[in-house]
Design a binder for these strands. Structure first.
Lengths: 337, 337
DNA sequence: TTGTAAGCGTTATCAG
DNA sequence: CTGATAACGCTTACAA
């Protein structure tokens, strides 16, 4: 049905072994021979059979991207970054969503789908307590992680604690003293980034001895709707905050909408700051701490590649690569009235 | 290094053939035998080697999603929809971006990466004149397409012509007579959807004998920035439109920003309507024609699966599945002043 | 219902 | 530098 390496070999008058070596660019092949083989191969429109190659070599030439969401902005940007790196390297990228439910079907544990199937794993923001994480890590294959930390794997992230501090201090310097935080959810189910941001926020609050009212923390589940409801809740309380630190821009968008619904103007009546620099943020006038999301994916992809290619990846204890962030001031924050 | 089918076979006291049949749920295996094999296999923590299975069977158990963008909203939603279907079916999903440039590297033609590697192809919105399209289609493997039409492949889309008509008529009924269109780019490089929307728009304009000024069409490249620049251009002209039909919500966002920058209020000074119902649209007060994007991916995935499984896929001429759209009126459109 | 054995198309070892 | 040839782990007629 298809052209095989044998056809190329006989057409070029060499052995299959030589064809294999020539086509893969291995040394110990005379240049003339290599050229001839290449020409014959492309003349025959030969494409190697990945299955056969994988079976014989033990390498699959592919990696898996494990992610709890595909279409949310942060995740799709990260995936795009990783894909570009893998494409350049000639590695296939398998997409695996481990979100809790798909179409109402229960989630399918990823580990069995990973074994013998990929050479490397890129984990995007799985919370440390996610039940799938441990089994994946104990597969002991080349692994990189974005927005998290795990022993022995390359991790890429921003300095979430510092980013949260930057955001919170921005509000403080504007004169705000009653600052609320819009986080994702309860501490038992948090992404690493989320926990760090919480710590950053708390540290600034503590340093300046600001109000530490438990009523000043609400959950927004990292969605716009969640952010809106969270802000609604804050505004419904006896003593609302004058400023809010939202752990993501999307939640901040929701908060802004809530403010407007209540006849309040962001930046004047209540200040809102986010983290991300989402493409819509400039449109919403949202002050935020930017993070280089695509680059997160690119960097993690590169590190994963290195692990896969490197002789015996000399992974020192915890490898953490931090990418820079930047405060971007817009109109959603302003001095306390 | 790993447990193979032989280990399972000898441990269960049967032949490898029986193990293979038992584990794959083929008929002609005594239930008792099947149970025993299954137990032994899971006891041994056996996972099949996909490479070997693929080589022997000729089936790869995977499909490729070919897309010009990964992180743009529409595309990531479609991918997410397709992924959920494939995950349920136990099919691997390979992600392949064919965007023009990656990291400044030239694009890598997808066809060689497809041959012998996947059992099916899902094409997301490749323009009919894309140089990669023809070679992909002539691979003659199970193929489904979103937002496009091609002979012999299952296509899923909305009725773009009707959607554009709905949008344009909405503006007409509000009293607008000088209506501009914010399209993607010149007609030589258009997505199918784009061409259809143009036709829909033109048909309404013609029916009501409205102004057909070539100065009333601008390109926005389906991005927010593009939409903004397009609107800027429109406003800079001698006789600006009183309403604009944007072919996507994201371009509409840009147009709204442009209006605001010019001190104009959308829906009062100039009306803007989009197509999509992007999650941010309600935040922007954007009137739009919604389309079920995730469902596009799901439906296309299902059709592709059917082709892959079906005996000899009885693909009648052109199969086109159209999903419904709906006009959603918000504040960005209003009666002509 | 189950077993035997011939592939599937490469890679890699070992000679030459 | 090149050629035989034995794996690689599974599927699938074909037999039994």
């Amino acid at each position: 049905m298809g052209i095989t390496i044998k056809d190329v070999a006989s057409a070029a008058g060499v052995s299959t072994a030589t064809v294999s070596r020539a086509l893969r660019g291995l040394p110990n092949v005379e240049e003339a021979t290599r050229e001839r083989v290449k020409e014959v191969a492309s003349g025959l429109d030969y494409v190697i059979s990945p299955s056969a190659s994988r079976l014989a070599s033990g390498r699959t030439g592919s990696i898996a991207v494990i992610t709890p969401y595909i279409s949310r902005w942060f995740f799709s940007e990260v995936i795009a970054g990783a894909e570009s790196v893998m494409q350049q390297a000639g590695i296939d990228l398998l997409l695996m969503n481990v979100g809790n439910y798909q179409n109402g079907h229960a989630r399918i544990p990823p580990t069995p789908r990973l074994r013998r199937r990929v050479d490397g794993i890129l984990i995007v923001s799985l919370p440390p307590q996610d039940p799938d994480l441990e089994p994946i890590l104990s597969l002991e294959m080349p692994t990189a992680m974005i927005g998290g930390v795990a022993p022995g794997v390359d991790c890429v992230a921003i300095d979430d604690l510092a980013a949260a501090r930057t955001a919170t201090e921005h509000l403080y310097f504007l004169g705000h003293r009653r600052i609320a935080v819009l986080s994702g959810g309860p501490s038992e189910a948090r992404f690493t980034a989320e926990s760090q941001r919480e710590r950053g926020f708390r540290s600034v609050i503590a340093e300046h001895s600001l109000v530490e009212d438990p009523m000043l923390e609400v959950f927004g589940h990292f969605t716009m709707e969640g952010g809106e409801h969270g802000m609604d809740a804050l505004l419904g309380r006896p003593n609302p905050p004058t400023a809010v630190f939202a752990m993501s821009d999307e939640m901040a968008f929701g908060a802004i909408r809530s403010l407007r619904n209540h006849g309040l103007e962001p930046g004047r009546d209540v200040s809102i700051i986010g983290i991300d620099n989402h493409p819509m943020s400039s449109y919403m006038g949202l002050t935020t701490v930017s993070q280089p999301v695509t680059e997160l994916g690119v960097k993690a992809g590169e590190l994963l590649l290195r692990q896969m290619q490197g002789p015996i990846a000399p992974i020192s204890a915890d490898r953490l690569t931090e990418l820079p962030t930047e405060l971007i001031v817009r109109t959603s924050t302003g001095p306390k009235a």
